[in-house]
Structures are given as C-alpha cells and as structure tokens.
Design a binder for these strands. Structure first.
Lengths: 252, 252
DNA sequence: GTGTTTATCGTCAAGCAGACGACTATGATC
DNA sequence: GATCATAGTCGTCTGCTTGACGATAAACAC
C-alpha cells in the first residue's frame, strides 16, 4: 500500500529545553522572552522546530548550543568534559497547547554548571536564568519587584516536570556533578544538593556518604579555599553513574 | 506573524504501546503481526496514528482499549478497579525509523494483570503475549521452536526501554500491584517481582517488607489456597503509591 | 592571638536488610 | 489416617547504613 498523506493528520514537532543550573544557591532555569505572538513578550522555554533530517536528540543539542553555547555531553564518550547533561524528559501534545496549530513538543532536560550570562541570539535582555520557584508561581512579584507572568504555553508544567525529574534523579545517580565545574569540592557538591532539594544537609554525613561511595568522586590531589575556611580537597566526577545505596532526600 | 506552513516540516505522530503482563512466571509483552509493508508479517508493538483532536494520553488509552479491551486507569480516580496502569514512556523520532515518511512515535507503557487471550481486531493469530526475552533476542528460536525475527521498526529498543522502566519502577512504587488481579496474595505479588526482575526472592523477608510498609497492602479478610499449601491472606492494593524505603532489587 | 568559617574524622544508637530456623495449614500420596 | 510436599507466616540474629552530633584541623579577618 503506497504512502497516503490523507491517512494521518500532519503535526509540527518541536523540542523545548528545560536547562537547569545552580546560581547563588538557587535552582534556576533558562527562560527566553517571546518576540512574537502568541504570548508575545512573555517568558518561555527555549526551543524550536525539529528539522526534516534531524533526530530528536540532535535537535535538542542544536537548540542547547544555539541558546547557551553548551555542547551536549555525549554519553558514549564518558571522559568528555564541559558537556552539559542532556536527556529526553517527556512529550506534550495537547491539541490546544498552541493556538496556531497542532504542535507536539518533545521536552528535554539539560543540567549545566553555573555559566556566564546567557545569550539568546546575542540579545541578553531576552534571556535569563530565573529561579524555578519564580517561574512556577503563577502570579506575584519576582525578586526584583517586577511583576511575574506565567510562562507561555504549557511551559510551567514542563518546568515542573523537569525540576521533579532532576530532584529525583540526583538521589540515585551521580548526576548532581553535572551542575558542578570539572573540579569541585565536597562542599560545593553539597550546596548543589541543598539548592536542588531546597533543604539543609549535614556536612559531616554528606561527606561520609559521597566519599564512601566507590566511583562517585575521584580526588585530583589539589585543594582550594574558594569558599573560605579550611582548604578543601578537589574532586572530579568518577565513572559511577548509579548510586547504590541512593542519597536519601530528607523528609520535608 | 501569521501561521506559515512552510516554516516547519510536517510529521506523522503515532503512539506505540508496550503492554506488559506476567504470564506463567514470565514477563510478557503484547505483540501484533503486521499486515502490510513495511515489515509485513513481522511482529510489532500495537499502536496507531494520533488523531487530530486527541491528546497523546487519550490516543494511547484508545489504542489500549482497541487491542486489549482494557480501560486505562485514570490516576485522578484512585479507587478505580480493573484499569490498567498507563504512562508515557519516551518518544522516538529517528528520521529513518519508518522508511515511508517522517514518523515520531510517543511510546507508552501499560501494565496489566494476566488476561484472557489477546485480540487484534478479533483475529487471535495476529496478536500474542510474548516473553520479553524472546522479543529482545535478535535471532534464534522461540519456545515453540518457531524461528524468531526481530521486531519491526525500532520496537525492540522501545520494548527494552519499557521493560527497564517497569523493572526500576516497581522498586520504589507500588506499581507491581498493577500486574495482579484486584485481590491477591503476598505470594502472588512476590512472583510478580520475581518474574519482572528475573530473580528469586526470600518469601519471609518479602512478606515482612510488603506487610510492614504502611499503605502498600490492605487485607480484605478473605483467604485462598489457589497456589496450594497453607491458605494465604488476600489483599488489595493500598493507597500508597511510593515505597519508602524502596524494595531492593538483589544484585545480579 | 582571637574569633569565624569551612572541612574532615569519629562515635553512638536506631532502623533496615539478608540469612535462615521454626511452626502452621492445606492438599496429595501411601 | 499417617506421612509428605507445598506454601504461608512469625521470629531471631548479624551487619550495614543512617541521622545526630562532638571534636579537631586549617585557612582568613581583625
């Protein structure tokens, strides 16, 4: 039976990105300002159409590079540095999610270390790192007193799902190191967990846990006093990806 | 700026279903035989095009009902019975995954209790429950001596991802009860875990764990001797969905 | 030097998991 | 009906992990 275009409705397929980082002890997501309707002037997630010859992961990596300059970490090259973690999150396809046409969006989750200022086509005023609580509250006022409008489309739901994925995934994997630079201290890693979970962790028990888990951290030999106080050992992420037993998230 | 159809390439969007059940102590997935090219005569996952006015979850629930007669369990109605668990799995969009055209498939995972014979439009010879190891081995011979051909398209990858999701999810959630009938014994639940994980579990420790986790199981008062031996208490699934601490999967 | 900050090591008790003994209640077999 | 096999249920013990927290170490600010 030959290909019959009338047999199925045509869709537009996009990728949207939840790019998370930890800045100033807060979990932040990258938001870009929409330059055209619908939702003109509102904040939204970066994203764009999947091209005709592109895989979904390729499209997500391309959008990530365009918006942040980050290369996506290729899981098949374990020793690669400076690449952001990128994984598929979920797919959103409500018929009414875009008023113009039928759009299915394959959302991806990226975790990146703290970066210099974001860029959106070179225009800094149209991209920012926003604390996720600010993006998720429907109305109110942000830290700078500016009124907060809800994210465009269903992007608040997507951010919420991405944050929840990140929160649960650092429990049982070594993914929290994706938020850290190449070399980092135990204290810096602990502050990542504290920012993502929004809780305080005991420094002594955390130190025992992460240094006692084989393959999680490998010492580089160096030390640093970045945070003040006694110099701390520097580590790199080890080869282990799964934490067993997991890092336990404290009860609320 | 008005809607410009030339600004994006058109896609076909489908849902594919990984329907898992436990039959005769083996984890099985529903497979249907393809009646037309490409891959005519080969086994594939049930699925079909998403309609113009349908949400993705609706499309998946519709396909599930068409192929198995199962209603999807609506998470907003906790007390509902007899509904299969249905959740989005992942989305597959390699440009070459369907030789006819550009198809993006949103795979869903369904977990169902052991059912009567499957039906595919009423034709039983074109649908079957196949042990997942049989579906995942690329070549060889099945249990009945018939030669095994790989699944159509990228469906082997999708089955593999679905099985992995189910294996990990029964660790930290009460989802294993989705494989059981409304009333079941601790031993039946244990055999579900053993089939899904492919391991043997200690009946005494398992019994202590599941009966000691608040909200996991609620006794119905009845007993049964279905499996022979001493009569066992019957339980229903409790309201808890998350298991904390999780059920630990034994090391290989 | 004194105080402050952060890192790191140690101790202790509670809880949980794995290994496994013992007993119970049914059906099957002789 | 006695014996056996099967499956379910209750306990015990030991080792590991965690959470709470004391103590020490090494830097900086004054």
């Amino acid at each position: 039976m030959p290909y019959d275009p009338s047999a199925f409705p045509p869709f537009a397929v996009t990728v949207d990105l939840v790019v998370l980082t930890v800045r100033r002890h807060a979990l932040c997501a990258l938001a870009v300002r929409r330059g055209e309707p619908p939702f003109q002037g509102r904040w939204a997630l970066p994203g764009g159409f999947v091209r005709a010859d592109e895989d979904l992961a390729q499209a997500a990596a391309r959008e990530l590079a365009e918006e942040t300059g980050l290369r996506a970490h290729d899981p098949s090259v374990p020793a690669q540095d400076n690449g952001a973690h990128l994984e598929q999150l979920a797919t959103y396809g409500d018929p009414k999610r875009d008023p113009r046409m039928r759009v299915v969006s394959v959302a991806h989750l990226a975790l990146a270390p703290d970066l210099p200022a974001p860029r959106a086509g070179g225009d800094a005023s149209n991209a920012r790192w926003a604390p996720v609580e600010e993006l998720l509250q429907q109305t109110g006022y942000g830290r700078d007193g500016e009124p907060v409008a809800p994210l465009a489309f269903d992007h608040a739901q997507i951010v919420s799902d991405g944050v929840e994925r990140a929160r649960s995934k650092i429990e049982y994997s070594s993914l929290a190191t994706a938020f850290c630079p190449t070399e980092f201290t135990v204290g810096e890693l602990r502050r990542v967990y504290e920012a993502v979970w929004g809780v305080a962790l005991d420094p002594r028990n955390f130190h025992r846990k992460v240094t006692g888990t084989p393959g999680f951290l490998v010492p580089t030999g160096g030390t640093t006093t970045r945070q003040g106080g006694r110099p701390a050992q520097l580590f790199r992420a080890g080869g282990a990806t799964l934490l067993n037993p997991p890092m336990l998230r404290p009860e609320v």
